[in-house]
């Protein structure tokens, strides 16, 4: 067969693609379980972080999550809520994702049962610039949301860049210096999540 002939070229390209894609599919399915476990762990860790539950290692994350976090009966077909009960108070947990400046941010948001306060926030993944928008994953930024009282409309607002707003009664968080787009998009994302929480948790009871 002529090496530069069309038949050889087509067959060769086909075989090469077939073999290499086959190997990739193999490697992918061998590691799929491990990858799924990592993703599950990342989610569970974020839930515990947002609830401020302490843990020592991955095994403890798994155990605590299994023991304390339940899927909420307020979940609907489209939106899954989880709940955590501590001293008769129920906290509602939701995974969220939304568009920030460079890509999708996924995280976990926790609110109290009246949807008056944010309990905590943790980020699972983001593609923001390290050192700028990427600072949404830093403790000072996330701690601003801990116990933050919502405005009468049930919202938070994002102030100018700063080093963290420690007043948790003013329904305001500081943005990140040099990353105002990421900061304001995070605000929009969280307010949208708060709306979902409100419609699911307050809608029926009032």
């Amino acid at each position: 067969m002529k090496k530069d002939g069309i038949v050889y070229t087509v067959i060769f390209t086909f075989i090469v693609s077939f073999v290499f894609v086959g190997i990739l599919a193999g490697v992918n399915s061998v590691t799929a379980e491990q990858t799924a476990r990592n993703q599950k762990l990342a989610f569970q860790r974020a839930v515990l972080n947002a609830l401020h539950i302490k843990y020592k290692d991955n095994q403890e994350i798994f155990d605590l999550y299994q023991r304390d976090i339940k899927k909420s009966s307020r979940s609907t077909g489209n939106v899954v809520l989880y709940e955590y009960t501590n001293e008769n108070e129920i906290f509602y947990i939701k995974e969220f994702s939304g568009q920030a400046l460079w890509g999708t941010v996924t995280g976990v948001l926790v609110v109290d049962q009246e949807v008056d306060r944010i309990v905590g926030l943790d980020i699972i993944s983001h593609n923001e610039t390290p050192g700028l928008g990427g600072r949404i994953d830093e403790a000072w930024y996330k701690n601003q949301f801990d116990g933050e009282l919502l405005s009468p409309e049930g919202k938070i607002s994002v102030g100018p860049g700063g080093s963290g707003d420690t007043d948790h009664q003013n329904h305001k968080v500081d943005g990140i210096t040099g990353a105002s787009r990421t900061s304001s998009l995070m605000g929009i994302m969280i307010n949208a999540q708060l709306d979902i929480f409100k419609s699911m948790l307050k809608g029926g009871s009032k």
């Binding site: 290499f20 894609v21 190997i23 992918n28 590691t31 491990q34 990858t35 990342a42 890509g103």
Partner: peptide, 23 residues
């Protein structure tokens, strides 16, 4: 092919690194 292999292995065995490298 080789890049996807790297990506798959990082995701499975070094998830933190894979997360910070993103795309």
């Amino acid at each position: 092919f080789y890049v996807i292999i790297v990506d798959i292995l990082l995701r499975a065995f070094l998830p933190e690194v894979s997360r910070s490298l993103g795309p």
